[in-house]
Design a protein around this nucleic acid. Structure first.
Lengths: 337, 337
DNA sequence: TTGTAAGCGTTATCAC
DNA sequence: GTGATAACGCTTACAA
């Protein structure tokens, strides 16, 4: 029973040919009900399982999609993958995962490996350190659908699913203004990544829309970890006129800021408000729960999958879809006076 | 340039045969240095990429492994997957992921799908609701290596990688005893999952080893969420002699307990100590950081991958390896008086 | 309605 | 050292 049974085995058992078995198994109309039933039964009896590899080789479709992310154990990305998997699995697709570790060279390697594996599409978030775009063009040349989620590069023929980072930045900042904060600082990330640039732009627009002048010393670019948040907020507090609120592009940075503020005996939210970005799971478990911008990553994954499916449906038509999801502001204790 | 180039294209270009090209590409000894060089060069020039699907069909090895977990966006599992991916990718394997959603029927479906896809092995954590084992036996019949991590079923021929849950429970409890806690309660999970049973056994042993009688009313089985932790601890506080410490088999339950204790004005850790299990990321970000048992999931994933590789190496020898990793107690504020 | 045979891209086993 | 050919398991014109 350990040997795999093929359609030939079934054919032999019934004294018919493999082609007929294949037709019976695939609901081909040109087949008699009798033989079809017979084939179905013996297939079940012999425990036949279709070899997807053979099908893939024949059809040129592997029914696998590749998903590339920086790290799979970052909640934002694993939630996206969950969305992709849940959308695609019912349609018979399998998800192959790769991690770039934020390295461009690894990203290129991942893409080549997935292409060799004949994936039907690649869904990915661009690595922080990626500057070239040749490897993306190469995917397109091979006519393999390419969908960027969250972090993208602007390329012709590539569909993207992102959230409106500008809007996220705007609403976070407006919320702080509504709370009566007058001197709102912003902790940002590297602007070579659009997402951070856009969150900053939203911040800026909200300020000017409400007649608040942008103070250059209130905007600090940092790495995305707790330590960076501590250092940046320390710097802010040393200013002649320190801020009374922080909008951070990262939840981790915001957490570092909160820790540092507390160290200085500053009361949150009464004296100082903080808003983060990403709705990392920990933000709502804090004793002082953190206001943050939710990116609905599972939805983002599902949407990326849907865009991929559209692309596959009309493979002759090159679609270039730009889906922009709306972020949700999760208002919690760190910003409500 | 959009068409895929095969070894036939290279052969045609050089007026040799595909077999020769194949040999050149695969470092076959029976080939002249000259033709080899020539083939290599034109292969590069024509941008040849090996079709892994064809190789897979021919060889019977897909170089894919399937990984099945309840939910991919649970940190514990995504970290394990990270470990698996990082161990296997350098060897040319790709990781296909599936989610059971804790449903037995989905688990069975996942296994069949992966088997159809001709994966070279299946690495998985058993779903909470799984009672049958037929689908696992079936994998073994097909001679596909099967490795369980964390949640396992005892089956002949299946290798497992787990942490020593007994030890974890023992050390967590002993730590509480060392802190001077006298009345230690335990919040457990469903004992049909070995992990919870073993953590409880460790708890029990630590108590008796230190001359503390096990009180039945101090042991409560709950679901693994915050709400359950709140309710269970409420029940404990209503006891005629309420406990002065909780060892919880889940970080979420422990968090719920802490919240409830605070609601009653109970001071942690001075009046009451709490220890969780799993070292979920949020535990160390809490203002009152939580003591918990770390399961080193990335290491667990790497180990599962290594066990799989051993199995593959000697496919004729059936290996049944039981790897048990040691947990680490992360001592934090919630339990240090 | 069913059988025949070619083909998907490789590699392996023969010959030469 | 290289070429011809079969085989992996399946689908699909084309014939019958």
């Amino acid at each position: 029973m350990s040997e795999k049974t093929t359609i030939y085995d079934i054919a032999k058992a019934l004294n018919i040919t493999a082609a007929t078995v294949s037709r019976a198994l695939n609901n081909n109309p040109k087949i008699s009900a009798a033989t079809k039933k017979l084939v179905m039964e013996t297939a079940a009896k012999m425990n036949y399982k279709q070899n997807r590899l053979a099908l893939a080789l024949k059809s040129g479709k592997s029914n696998n999609v590749g998903v590339i992310v920086p790290y799979i154990d970052r909640n934002f990305f694993s939630a996206i993958i969950r969305g992709i998997e849940e959308e695609l699995y019912p349609l018979g697709y399998h998800v192959i995962i790769c991690q770039t570790h934020e390295q461009e060279s690894t990203e290129i390697d991942n893409i080549n490996a997935l292409l060799n594996a004949q994936v039907d599409g690649i869904l990915m978030s661009v690595s922080k350190l990626t500057t070239q775009t040749d490897h993306f063009e190469y995917v397109l040349e091979k006519n393999v659908p390419l969908v960027f989620f969250d972090r993208k590069k602007d390329l012709k023929g590539v569909s993207t699913v992102t959230i409106d980072d500008f809007e996220g930045g705007y609403r976070a900042t407006k919320h702080l203004i509504d709370q009566g904060c007058k001197r709102i600082a912003h902790l940002s990330g590297d602007w070579s990544l659009e997402i951070y640039k856009n969150r900053y732009e939203g911040y800026k627009k909200a300020l000017t829309d409400h007649g608040i002048a942008l103070k250059k010393e209130y905007v600090i670019k940092t790495k995305s970890d707790i330590r960076a948040g501590q250092k940046a907020s320390e710097k802010l507090l040393m200013l002649p006129e320190p801020p009374d609120a922080i909008f951070s592009s990262s939840d981790y940075v915001a957490l570092g800021a909160i820790q540092q503020l507390k160290k200085h005996g500053i009361k949150i939210p009464t004296e100082f408000c903080v808003v983060g970005f990403s709705n990392e799971p920990f933000t709502k478990f804090l004793e002082l729960s953190m206001t943050t911008v939710d990116q609905s990553p599972v939805e983002m994954g599902k949407m990326a999958a849907k865009v991929f499916l559209e692309q596959v449906k009309d493979s002759n038509v090159k679609i270039e879809k730009k889906v922009v999801l709306s972020p949700t502001l999760k208002i919690r204790m760190s910003s409500v006076k």
